[in-house]
Design a binder for these strands. Structure first.
Lengths: 220, 220
DNA sequence: AGAATGTTTTGAACGTGTTCAAGAATGAGT
DNA sequence: ACTCATTCTTGAACACGTTCAAAACATTCT
């Protein structure tokens, strides 16, 4: 039975995440985690190849929670602005308990070799889940988003979401008020910006921008 | 005479930067730097409070070089597109020797507590120098950039430059071909996008976007 | 010159993430 | 019940960034 093994793994992960939240990233040493969990250091490493792997565990959990909370917040909201706000605000909500830890997380995540890197292979599942949220936000909107934008928009919004997360990390205002303000201000702007795509002169610029994004992305 | 002291400092810095370039960030240990420079570990720490401080040294040096090279590349180039390309391409040029080291640099720089953080206090001088390049690129352009954009544009372009740097770090194509492609594609798009500000419907969106940027920035 | 003060240099020591050989515990097959 | 292979678990050991008391050196003052 794999239950015992899984139990130890869970225990280590739970203790680690709890300590990340409560005492921060640096003070949460592998030795402290092991001691608190009542296992040896080596045992923790048997389940998690590195401290970064424990951060990855956190990332997945936060992402999962975001998917659930965002889906709920999207219910009954029709307009793109509202839907965008819902997704971004819930994103900040689920990250909130880890704010003090945010910069360490980003520093870990940004390294291409890290398992937590959102563009990396190890995060494929989490990234897809996150992308799905934005896809749902875009596709469920009425009035509908212009067809030609519908394909790339979710990915671009996801990227913007990364930007918001980055802003949030640096946001030292209480309760991250400024991040909320940014979201509330930017969401309607994005929607209005998109609606400009109907203007002939603007349309071409949009097309070229999308073309550039695609060509840069595809070029291995 | 402070010359002897300054000499040791320079020696340590030179050895460190050389090793960063040649063997990478992680393999360049403080012990290795000290040994290669023929000083003790503690002595290196007498001049640089941390390994990050040595990265800061590198950052400043790269920034300075960028200022020089960019100024040269801007000579005789009138149009905004050309000027933008010049600044961004030279930026990539000066970073090139450190590409393999780039992700570690960014991981260090992104941490708010790091001296290298481009938004931080310790980097004020380097940031101002970098901003000045973009200001010069914008102000020297003819046809001139719309007045209302002129104030915030340099800072926004500087931010875009950070984005390009981030892209560059992840760019694994040979010679960072994709980053070059991105610059060549994005520069004209930015210029065309800016020219859209004359269209009445678009103008309002621009105004609101600038207003948002300002309000979020000022709200301490 | 000698004392006092300030600057520079040293290397051992600390706590960290991580590794690994060795040992326990478990389970399957006979 | 007794192997034997697999899965878990342990804790000492390693290299790293960093600290610090002490020593060496330099400079200034009397």
């Amino acid at each position: 039975m794999a239950a015992k093994s899984e139990q130890t793994r869970q225990l280590v992960a739970d203790v680690a995440l709890k300590m990340f939240r409560e005492v921060g990233f640096e003070k949460t040493t592998m030795r402290a985690i092991a001691q608190e969990a009542g296992v040896s250091v080596g045992n923790a490493y048997y389940y998690f190849a590195s401290k970064d792997d424990l951060v990855q565990e956190l990332y997945i959990q936060v992402q999962d929670e975001h998917a659930v909370v965002a889906a709920h917040a999207l219910e009954g909201v029709q307009d793109l602005v509202g839907r965008l706000k819902a997704v971004l605000h819930t994103g900040v909500d689920v990250m909130a308990p880890y704010h003090q830890f945010g910069s360490d997380f980003i520093a870990t995540a940004i390294r291409p070799s890290s398992p937590v890197n959102p563009f990396g292979e190890a995060s494929t599942a989490a990234r897809e889940a996150s992308l799905a949220i934005f896809r749902s936000a875009v596709e469920g909107a009425s009035p509908a988003v212009a067809k030609k934008l519908r394909r790339d928009l979710p990915e671009l919004l996801w990227l913007a979401h990364m930007g918001v997360a980055l802003f949030w990390v640096y946001d030292r205002s209480e309760g991250q008020r400024r991040t909320r303000k940014l979201i509330d201000g930017a969401a309607p702007l994005v929607a209005r910006g998109l609606s400009l795509a109907k203007i002939p002169g603007v349309s071409k610029v949009f097309d070229d921008a999308l073309g550039l994004v695609r060509s840069v992305k595809e070029d291995s």
